Amino acid sequence: MKKLITGITLTFALAFMLPQAGSANVGINEKFGLPIVVYGGNLSDAEKESVAKELDVAGEAEVEEIEVTGQDLITYIKDGDSRARMYSSAKITRKDAGAGLVIEIVTPDNITQVTNEMYANAMLTAGIEDATVEVAAPKPVTGHSALVGIYKAYEVNGEQLDPERTDVANDELAVATEIADSGVEDAKVSELLTEIKKQIAEQDPATKEEVQKIVEEQLTKLQIELSPEDRQLLIDLMDRIRKLDIDFSKWSTQLEDLSKTIEDKIGTVVNDEGFWQSVKNFFNKLIDGIRGLVS
């Protein structure tokens, strides 16, 4: 379903898209440095060339190119496996404060689990804001390694990311894809995560019990049914987010804009349950076929 929705909607934009996005190349940004292209470390030479084309590397005045490997996983993720295979790649262009995040999966057929909104939510949790991020892969992969590559790009650019936040962000991506795999529509998963975060920002819960109440309220409001196991995963995740060193008041605008984007996307979906079930069945089979791949 994600691929079809991506194909019939405009490029996802979180917060305020720059009015000159897509305009002529203005050369090297001397304030933020070069765009950084992060290639999955397990790409072959031919695959790397294909990804570079998809990310329009040649169209940039100049870029910095690096690789993300399984070794980087253990830097940003507590239980990361250094033997993981890394294929999904990204180009990151930093923007001025207030520009927000613009996320585009340029090879939607090859990023099988992670959506634009899932990336955006996880990046906000990790502390990444104000950038244009394009994601690509040369073959079907889940898309998780692109997030680790984005972390690495920011540190190469001189940013210091909180390892606790990057670990929680990875956990968030895992929970989001787990819930989506259980049968909840991708857009509804992103809506659920965003609405819970908005309530955490507004209510400032002090205990896990208060977080659980917020989660339960949003599940009821959005009419989402989860297994007891997935429900507990979500509560545990949101309690971890509550404990992070985050100024939640600064999230309000970005979460509100993300919420509006998701609502607009849900509004474009054709209200035909039989049609969407056939689409979901197709992609469930595709995901089952590649579930053994770690990316």
Rank of each mutant, 00 (worst) to 15 (best):
residue 240 R to D: 13
residue 217 E to A: 14
residue 235 I to C: 03
residue 188 K to N: 11
residue 221 K to A: 10
residue 237 L to F: 09
residue 270 V to K: 02
residue 218 Q to N: 10
residue 240 R to E: 14
residue 238 M to Y: 10
residue 212 Q to V: 12
residue 205 P to D: 03
residue 213 K to L: 09
residue 238 M to F: 14
residue 189 V to I: 03
residue 240 R to G: 14
residue 247 D to S: 04
residue 200 I to D: 06
residue 263 E to Q: 08
residue 188 K to M: 13
residue 190 S to L: 05
residue 252 S to K: 14
residue 195 E to H: 12
residue 257 D to R: 13
residue 250 K to C: 03
residue 270 V to N: 06
residue 241 I to T: 02
residue 251 W to A: 11
residue 249 S to C: 09
residue 201 A to P: 05
residue 229 E to T: 14
residue 188 K to A: 08
residue 226 L to Y: 14
residue 218 Q to Y: 08
residue 220 T to Y: 12
residue 190 S to E: 07
residue 200 I to E: 04
residue 210 E to D: 10
residue 203 Q to H: 09
residue 205 P to R: 01
residue 259 S to H: 10
residue 214 I to P: 04
residue 236 D to L: 00
residue 215 V to K: 01
residue 215 V to M: 00
residue 220 T to V: 07
residue 219 L to D: 13
residue 202 E to G: 07
residue 262 I to W: 04
residue 239 D to R: 00
residue 212 Q to G: 12
residue 204 D to W: 08
residue 214 I to T: 10
residue 191 E to L: 15
residue 191 E to R: 03
residue 185 E to T: 14
residue 268 T to Y: 07
residue 197 K to C: 13
residue 193 L to M: 13
residue 236 D to C: 01
residue 191 E to F: 07
residue 201 A to G: 04
residue 219 L to F: 02
residue 249 S to E: 15
residue 201 A to R: 01
residue 196 I to M: 05
residue 217 E to R: 08
residue 223 Q to P: 11
residue 203 Q to T: 08
residue 203 Q to L: 07
residue 233 L to W: 10
residue 257 D to Y: 14
residue 261 T to Y: 04
residue 195 E to P: 07
residue 273 E to C: 02
residue 234 L to E: 03
residue 216 E to A: 10
residue 249 S to W: 02
residue 216 E to H: 05
residue 227 S to W: 04
residue 194 T to I: 12
residue 199 Q to W: 03
residue 193 L to C: 00
residue 263 E to M: 06
residue 197 K to E: 14
residue 218 Q to A: 00
residue 263 E to L: 04
residue 228 P to W: 03
residue 245 D to I: 07
residue 200 I to P: 06
residue 242 R to T: 08
residue 262 I to L: 07
residue 233 L to I: 11
residue 195 E to T: 14
residue 193 L to K: 10
residue 192 L to P: 14
residue 236 D to E: 13
residue 264 D to H: 05
residue 244 L to G: 04
residue 252 S to F: 15
residue 264 D to P: 07
residue 205 P to G: 00
residue 258 L to C: 02
residue 220 T to D: 12
residue 253 T to Y: 15
residue 220 T to R: 04
residue 236 D to A: 02
residue 197 K to M: 15
residue 262 I to S: 02
residue 266 I to W: 03
residue 229 E to K: 03
residue 197 K to Q: 15
residue 265 K to F: 09
residue 203 Q to V: 07
residue 270 V to H: 05
residue 234 L to T: 08
residue 199 Q to G: 11
residue 270 V to Q: 09
residue 271 N to P: 12
residue 195 E to R: 10
residue 196 I to V: 07
residue 262 I to M: 02
residue 249 S to G: 09
residue 265 K to Q: 10
residue 191 E to V: 10
residue 213 K to S: 06
residue 271 N to Y: 12
residue 199 Q to S: 13
residue 256 E to V: 09
residue 264 D to F: 12
residue 252 S to W: 07
residue 246 I to K: 12
residue 244 L to F: 02
residue 263 E to K: 09
residue 207 T to H: 03
residue 224 I to G: 03
residue 248 F to N: 01
residue 268 T to G: 00
residue 205 P to K: 01
residue 207 T to P: 10
residue 255 L to F: 05
residue 258 L to T: 08
residue 243 K to W: 05
residue 274 G to V: 11
residue 238 M to N: 12
residue 270 V to A: 15
residue 231 R to T: 11
residue 264 D to M: 06
residue 187 A to Y: 14
residue 266 I to A: 02
